[in-house]
C-alpha cells in the first residue's frame, strides 16, 4: 500500500515577500470593489496558511488588518498617495479574511470578507481628550450640515448643480460648536446658478463624482458654512475578471465608478483646477 500524504496546509511567515504580495493584491481587491466609504491600506498581516489545491496551484488563506485612509472610494488618487486616517481623527480599522488562488504564477481572489470598526472612544479620549468622535451618519445635525454645505456650495458654483450622493463621515465639534461632515456629490445636467427645481435635474450619463468637506457652525439666527469640494475626473473602469467559483463572495458587488467613457473636465480644465473653495 502506497502511503498517501495528507494534504495539509503550511504556515507562512506573515512578513514573507510573497505573503505581502498576496496581501497587497487583497487590499487592491477591497478598494476596487468599494462604492462608498474610504479606501483602506494594509496595516498588518495577521495569519497566512497555504493550502495545496487539486489538480494544481495553491490557495492562500489570509487574515489582514487594514486602516482607513483619507481618500474616498470614488477618489481616483492612487492608494500610495493617500494618507492614513490618524487616531486623532477617529481612525477606522478593517479586519479581512481572504482566499487567494495562486496558479501558474498568477494570483486570483476567490473570496473576501471584511468588517470595519472605528477605534474605541475611550482609546481616543485617553490620547486626545478634546478630539471630536465620529457621529452616526443618521444624526439629523449631520444631514442638515451636509444639506446646508451643499446648498452654499451650489449658490457659489458656476458649474453643474451638484446632488448629494453619500455622507461619508461626520463629527460633532464641541469648540467652537459645529458639525464637521464629509460627503460625496454627483454632477447633474442643470447649471447650479439657474436651478429652480432641483428635482428636475438628472445625473449625467457619464457619472461625475466629487468629494466635499464642510464645517457648519450654528451662530445666533444664522449658520456659518465653510465648504470645499473637489470634482473628480470621470474614470474609465476596466471590468476585472472574477473566477466563477461557487460560494465566492466579493466585498462589494459593483465597481467603484460606472464603466463609462472618460469625460473631459468642463472648459478643458485640469482636474486640479476643479478644486473649489472654501466658500464662506
Amino acid at each position: 500500500v502506497t502511503a498517501v500524504p495528507l494534504l495539509g496546509y503550511r504556515e507562512h511567515n506573515c512578513d514573507d515577500p510573497e505573503a505581502e504580495q498576496v496581501a497587497l493584491l487583497a487590499v487592491d481587491h477591497i478598494n476596487n470593489h468599494l462604492q462608498q466609504g474610504y479606501k483602506h491600506i494594509l496595516n498588518r498581516i495577521d495569519k497566512v496558511k497555504v493550502w495545496p489545491r487539486r489538480p494544481t496551484g495553491e490557495v492562500y488563506e489570509l487574515e489582514i488588518d487594514t486602516l482607513e485612509t483619507t481618500c474616498h472610494a470614488l477618489d481616483p488618487t492612487p492608494l500610495a498617495n493617500c494618507s492614513v486616517r490618524q487616531v486623532t481623527q477617529h481612525a477606522v480599522e478593517g479586519d479581512c479574511d481572504f482566499h487567494v488562488l495562486k496558479q501558474d504564477g498568477q494570483f486570483t481572489v476567490l473570496s473576501a470578507k471584511c468588517d470595519s470598526t472605528p477605534d474605541s472612544a475611550e482609546d481616543i479620549l485617553k490620547l486626545c481628550p478634546d478630539c471630536p468622535l465620529l457621529t452616526p451618519l443618521n444624526d439629523t445635525r449631520v444631514a442638515q450640515a451636509a444639506e446646508a454645505a451643499l446648498t452654499a456650495f451650489n449658490e457659489k458654483n458656476n458649474g453643474a448643480y451638484l446632488q448629494l450622493v453619500e455622507i461619508a463621515r461626520a463629527q460633532l465639534v464641541p469648540l467652537p460648536a459645529s458639525t464637521y461632515v464629509e460627503f460625496t456629490v454627483a454632477a447633474t445636467d442643470c447649471v447650479a446658478k439657474e436651478v429652480t427645481d432641483p428635482a428636475k435635474c438628472n445625473l449625467l450619463a457619464d457619472k461625475q463624482y466629487g468629494f466635499c468637506k464642510a464645517t457648519v457652525a450654528e451662530k445666533v439666527a444664522r449658520e456659518e458654512v465653510e465648504v470645499t469640494c473637489t470634482i473628480f475626473p470621470a474614470q474609465p473602469v476596466v471590468p476585472q475578471p472574477q473566477p466563477g467559483v461557487a460560494g465566492a463572495a466579493a466585498v462589494e458587488p459593483a465597481p467603484a465608478v460606472d464603466p463609462a467613457s472618460p469625460v473631459s473636465p468642463p472648459d478643458g480644465q485640469s482636474p486640479s483646477s476643479l478644486v473649489v473653495g472654501p466658500v464662506l
Partner: peptide, 27 residues
Amino acid sequence: VVVQPSVGAAPGPVITPCPGKVRYFKI
C-alpha cells in the same frame, strides 16, 4: 531547529512568524 541526535540544540530566539509587523499603528 534540526540537529544530529548526538548534538544538543542550542536555545535560540523563538521565531513568531505571525502576526507580521504593524506598518502604521495598532488600534
